[in-house]
Design a protein around this nucleic acid. Structure first.
Lengths: 206, 206
DNA sequence: ATATGTGAAATCTTTCACAGCG
DNA sequence: CGCTGTGAAAGATTTCACATAT
């Protein structure tokens, strides 16, 4: 059932399945169906079955899916069956909130390095991690073999930070800055911008 | 060119156009083309033209688009040509970072009310806004006619907070909690979940 | 009886390509 | 000439519906 690239739109739904399934698991629910899962997250049962079938036959006809098994499979597929170290660039209000967020650790992500260009912030310790100066960023990220970075710097410096991250070998960037980043094809970017989310909703308001 | 519902996927791109155009405006750029804009944000020129043409003929053939005019039109379309008051529920690390974020004000959004259920947080003042107890939430939001809320509470209470927000007349929710919210059809939800964004990228890493 | 996995059909979205205007 | 606006074509995604397995 494999060996044909799976559309990115499918990949985008897998973490939502995983989240809902992990939640079910916590509730002690061990079996579910595409219908039940779909109702929980607002996606059609057929869609869920088709998405999952891209990776194998995970269900049992007449019975449904084993929740622990499906969680395990999705973790493998999404490569979150391991620990990912991340770098955080920008130790402002948002950066500090992110560094203190416990949810990362619970899901296999770890803020391993924090950088800022402000000498007043360098040396501070946030959630047991010392803030380093950005001048040491490229070599430090390289030597730690870090592939994921989160950017919480002002928009006007986001692209130059990004360029350095790419030089350092980073392949995935979670960008909290209000700016579109230009990156090579093998680098992935996801944007977290509350303004964009809000504007998408105000459209529908009176 | 109107009177047929425009797909949500189109709406989702409009804020990105607006962001890029506002950025151009700041740079003093007054005219652009679908090609130039597309290259900046990684969307095809044809797509941009088609999206914009849903709302009118904003460009001039042979010339391109007036940046200030297009910004104005997009602000109207997205209904961000006004001030939107918002309620923030949850005054933890993330809630405080959000309350202090200056970007909202710059784009017509204002954190008007902050709520928390922790008596130690109630009475604190964040960015000049006092934290109120959630017991007064429904009536306070109602009396302020607030239609937009941001949720930064723990996942396990997010749905019950949501139910209260709906009772209070809120029609748009930006959910920072790791949970899927169940809402009526006339209420819009957008999710901000770093774990989901990260998992979407680890898929592509080695 | 129940729920999966899946081709085929229906629907939605994007791209093409060009007429038409400045 | 250069670039928009747009039908028509191509492509992608979702839904349908049912054979199949427990």
């Amino acid at each position: 059932m494999n060996e044909k690239t799976i559309p990115d739109i499918v990949i985008g739904r897998l973490p939502r399945y995983l989240q809902a399934l992990e939640h079910m698991l916590q509730q002690g629910c061990t079996v579910t169906s595409s219908k039940e899962l779909g109702e929980k997250i607002g996606i059609s049962a057929a869609q869920i079955r088709k998405d999952l079938s891209q990776y194998g036959e995970f269900g049992k006809q007449g019975k449904g899916y084993s929740v622990p098994f499906l969680v395990h499979k999705l973790q493998q597929i999404l490569k979150v069956d391991r620990i990912w170290d991340m770098a955080l660039i920008g130790a402002g209000n948002l950066g500090r909130a992110i560094a203190n967020y416990q949810g990362f650790t619970d899901h296999g992500f770890r803020v391993a390095l924090i950088f800022d260009s402000d000498p007043h912030k360098v040396g501070q310790v946030i959630n047991q991690i010392p803030v380093l100066h950005t001048s040491t960023m490229i070599e430090t990220i390289q030597s730690h073999h870090i592939k994921i970075a989160m950017i919480t710097v002002p928009a006007q410096v986001a692209q130059s930070v990004t360029n350095q991250l790419i030089q350092a070998g980073v392949k995935a960037i979670l960008n909290y800055a209000r700016s579109t980043l230009s990156v090579p094809d093998d680098v992935h970017v996801q944007y977290v911008d509350p303004i964009i989310h809000l504007q998408r909703m105000t459209y529908y308001l009176d």
